[in-house]
């Protein structure tokens, strides 16, 4: 059962998220002294796991939601993930010891500008929302006594209200220009979002010295960049 991971058991695996956050994360990763092999930067490479300049460390590149899953189950030891992902999963095995301060944006509720004027939120008992974050959305509305029926989408949430899929969306907003371009207004912020360094709980115990050393390096690099 464990044997499949045995050959690489002693390597430390760092899980990095594809897309938006990666660009901001790589300078930090490089500055703590982890430089992946050249194939990592090759857009045509089909490789998913990469060696680094440090023989004890490999990096993997996966979707941001999957970073949380890989680290929570101990398949990766460290990772970088937004707290949107952490809030959505609520994995108890995932520790978030450091705010990297990158990938800043917010998780918000948005709706068509016209709808704003005609509805009274206090009268809601049930609403329908398109989102990539059904758990956070349900929890957010449940806290004020409203049942949220969530339609899970994986992207292009902003299309949903215009096409009649639903009237509201819950999505990440950074500049707000995508919302504006689709005739939506931000009506409420659920949480501010930044990327965190995440760590597997068991790894924090059985490889305590090594894991603490990496977290401290990331901490120093973050302090250095914010000063």
């Amino acid at each position: 059962m464990v044997s499949s991971s045995a050959p690489t058991a002693d390597k430390l695996i760092l899980a990095l998220p594809k897309g938006r956050i990666l660009e901001e994360a790589m300078p930090l990763v490089n500055r703590v002294g982890i430089v992946p092999e050249p194939a990592f930067d090759d857009p045509h490479s089909r490789q998913l796991r990469f060696a680094t300049n440090n023989p004890g460390v490999d990096v993997i590149r996966v979707r941001s939601f999957d970073v949380a899953t890989f680290v929570a189950f101990g398949a990766a030891h460290l990772g970088i993930a937004g707290n949107d992902v952490l809030m959505e999963f609520g994995y108890s095995e995932l520790l978030a010891p450091l705010d990297l301060g990158i990938g800043a944006c917010r998780l918000s509720v948005a709706e068509p500008a016209a709808l704003r004027a005609e509805e009274d939120p206090a009268s809601w008992s049930h609403i329908r929302v398109a989102t990539k974050y059904p758990e956070i959305t349900r929890r957010h509305f449940a806290a004020r006594g409203v049942q949220a029926e969530c339609i899970k989408l994986n992207g292009a949430m902003e299309l949903a209200p215009a096409l009649g899929l639903c009237r509201r969306i819950v999505d990440l907003v950074s500049s707000g220009s995508t919302l504006k371009a689709n005739g939506l207004v931000e009506v409420e912020t659920i949480a501010p979002i930044t990327s965190r360094l995440v760590a597997n709980r068991t790894a924090m115990k059985v490889r305590a010295r090594e894991m603490n050393a990496w977290i401290e390096k990331f901490q120093e690099v973050c302090n250095g960049s914010s000063a």
Binding site: S92, L95, P97, M204, A208, R209, N212
Partner: peptide, 30 residues
């Protein structure tokens, strides 16, 4: 604190009260 998320603690309590948790966090590990 169970998630070691000191950033979240700072948003929940005033800075003066968060200091003791930040100090305690250094006791985590070997």
């Amino acid at each position: 604190l169970g998630q070691k998320d000191l950033k979240a603690v700072e948003t929940l309590v005033p800075a003066g009260q968060a200091a003791v948790f930040t100090a305690l966090a250094r006791a985590m590990g070997p």
